[in-house]
Write a protein that binds this DNA or RNA. Sequence first.
RNA 1: GCCGACGUAGCUCAGGGGUAGAGCGUUUCCUUGGUAAGGAAGAGGUCACGGGUUCAAUUCCCGUCGUCGGCUCCA
Length: 646
Amino acid sequence: MIQITLPDQSVRSFPKGVTGLEIAKSISEGLARNVLSISVDGEVMDLHRPIQKDASVKLHTWNDKEGKATMWHSSAHLMASAIEDLYPGTKFGIGPDIENGFYYDIDLGEHTISSNDFGKIEKKMLEMAREKQAFIRKEVPKQEALAFYEKKGDEYKVDLISDLEDGTITFYESGHFTDLCRGPHLPDTSPIKAIKLLAIAGAYWRGDESRKQLTRVYGISFPKQKELEEYLAMLEEAKKRDHRKIGRELELFAFSARVGQGLPLWLPKGAELRENLENFLKKVQRKSGYLPVITPHIGNKNLYITSGHYEKYGQDSFRPITTPAEGEEFFLKPMNCPHHCEIFKVKQYSYKDLPVRFAEFGTVYRYEQSGELHGLTRVRGFTQDDAHIFCRPDQVKEEFTKVIDIVLHIFNALDFKDYSAQISLRDPKDMEKYIGTEANWDKAEQAIIEATHEKGLHAEIVTGEAAFYGPKLDFMVKDALGRKWQLGTIQVDYNLPERFELEYIGSDNQKHRPVMIHRAPFGSMERFVAVLIEHCAGNFPLWLAPDQAIILPISDKYQEYAKKVLTLLNNSGIRALIDERSEKTGKKIRDAEIRKVPYMLIVGEKEESDGTVSVRKHGKGDLGSFTTEAFSRLLLDEIKEIMSQT
RNA sequence: GCCGACGUAGCUCAGGGGUAGAGCGUUUCCUUGGUAAGGAAGAGGUCACGGGUUCAAUUCCCGUCGUCGGCUCCA
């Protein structure tokens, strides 16, 4: 007998070799019907795998992340199986479960498929699922595994197997389909009741641009048709929050092919919004001892040779601008740090002067490949809320911590709760990519890890994601469709100070090298606004809204009074406008609701004679009658309250 | 840049080898109204751009540009 510990810490005895399914059955028939996989001492396994020793287990159903993963992984096999049936000779790459569904990378050889073929594949998958095909796990010696796929002519699987160790290789069989796979899988295909193929795309083999591009088919599956329908409805809802759609509807920004792709045009309302954000951060930075600087939009090639950016990105940049007579080369600035380094060199600093913090909303231009552009989140010209802190080595941790505080302050002010933090370090296997000494990198990485730890911030550590000059701490927020975008970033840099030979005079009267911290709490104004729009679906917090109130006269007779109210509001610093059209009140209200203006002020005969406004709040409805002064106070208090909470 | 899809009025979209349609918006007029759409008339399109096939192309084919979903990249 072995002892099995359940998640509630209760312990039950089972015969040695008991399976997950048997454990589920011993608990309840219902659980046995719904269970999809099991974790044994933290490792997710098939329900049919015998358990040989004492263990802690957790049974996974559709309601668990692991249950969904098992379902989707098996669905990927099912799809591959259907595709092999429909398109004989197809070769297979990898087919994992992902956050929302699964995909399989395939090489169709002669065949091509498009989304028009999805119906056919889905139908075949459902047929196979109903056959209740069992997933059978087999341990296979490496030689045999290689021979199997060499015979089949599937070079991708051969490639994968070559990297595996003998004795660890397993195949899974379902129906006629055999796949190299670690598992785990469902006991059989029957829980897969609803299937939707979602997209088709190219994907490089092993993520390597220089290798062959396979066809990637994305899909998702559910245990009930109704859940599929709900998922599709949710996707439709998410599309309504798309910042590109809301940006057009609320007249925030636009693009013009004539101006150039990836070059956003900020419209008056969008510019107002962005300025409000900038002013908010400027205020925070003033309090935190940052000094504003302004630098030009271009820089001499030599600047970037010094910084190392030229060597790294020179060929992947917009081509240089040249002076007609001398042939000097200038680059559109792709980042602000080299300029800020030169500002540091303008005068001599004592150790007592440090840290100095130069801040600039610096507009930069980067050549992004055309296929990478995406709304406001990935553009070719954007403005960083950039600053560079030059400090003594003993100040790094404290300064870094202070920047974390600013980022968190901003996220709080905007009610971003669902963010994640990521520490990006060097790739130890590819040190060529980086500049600077081993010792400096060690120091920088250590500083970031310690400061993050001391802030009690939970951050995932990812190697190979560092910038070429230093490691960083990034803050990621998801968009409406769950795609992760990097917003705030903080980077510790020992390298640029060296390359620019930055110095300060220490208490020992000797020259010392400062440490540089790059930071942008928003990341870029463009991307931040994009994510903000998707977060609030265009219902901006009152203090940010481009228009905070709109005055709706009941008829043309009250235009004069409306103007009086407008003047009063403007004098209190409230952004407001009048809907002067000869429309009925109902229509004006409808339009103002659609434009998501936080407050509507209805003025007619009654209001004019009483000196009041009738207030309606966006999404809430009628709040009743207020004097204009009382309304201004109400609005300003609301703003103050929001701001004081952060 | 690569794979795939798409591009019809300012917006959302219908149509389809014989040079175009709806709703919203916009303009003018009527209406002057009390908390989510008042009425009428009008304007507005080289059907993304450039080639080709055809008696005839917005429609079919090719290329370019742009957009969308991925991949790669992201200083």
